[in-house]
């Protein structure tokens, strides 16, 4: 047995934070199924920025798995939707950060990444819902409404992630 590395501990800590946000959010009633703020993605974005894509993928995966186990929704339709959304957004984040980077002049800032993650999440969920549960083309009529909600919440998560990242950077610069 090898002991946990520092990175393992960091991932576990971030995943725990994300799980807490995920569960708090699940208790907030939603006007439409599939619409929720996705504030747990703030953690994914922060980890992507500070610890790279592999750590972010771990945090997102653990969040969905542990969150569903604690909520009792593991392997239910809710879980399928949530997992497909998380998978799609982490893949999109990975591809974008691989091609465009996070700190180059032409790379998006957290606002851009928040938008990409939210849209990927929603598109995958919608497709999954159509493919597995409601194979009726009328479902696509929900797309504009759901994606509009994603866009609004992407602005919120992007702003929150930017705030936290700024704060963390300031803490690091300050000598203890």
């Amino acid at each position: 047995m090898t002991s946990a590395t520092l990175q393992d501990r960091q991932i576990a800590g971030f995943a725990a934070l994300a799980v807490v946000i995920h569960i708090l959010e699940a208790s907030v009633p939603s006007p439409l199924p599939g619409v929720k703020p996705g504030l747990a993605n703030v953690i994914t974005l922060i980890v992507l920025w500070r610890h790279g894509w592999v750590a972010a993928a771990w945090v997102a995966g653990l969040r969905v798995l542990v969150g569903s186990l604690l909520l009792g929704s593991f392997m239910t339709p809710t879980f399928m939707l949530s997992a497909s959304g998380a998978l799609a957004s982490i893949v999109v984040l990975g591809l974008t950060s691989w091609v465009l980077g996070t700190r180059r002049p032409w790379s998006p800032s957290v606002y851009g990444y928040a938008l990409l993650a939210a849209w990927a999440h929603m598109a995958a969920q919608l497709w999954m819902a159509w493919w597995l549960f409601i194979p009726h083309d009328g479902l696509w009529r929900l797309a504009p409404v759901l994606l509009m909600a994603s866009t609004v919440f992407a602005a919120v998560t992007g702003w929150a992630a930017a705030k936290v990242l700024t704060w963390l950077a300031q803490q690091q610069e300050r000598p203890c």
Binding site: L100, P105, W106, S107, P108, S109, V110, Y111, G112, L115, L116, W119, L147, T151, A162, K163, L165, T166, A169
Partner: peptide, 15 residues
Amino acid sequence: WLAVKPMDLLLWGAA
């Protein structure tokens, strides 16, 4: 960190 970059405008515009 709060700086909005050109790519953000592009992405948000496209969205």
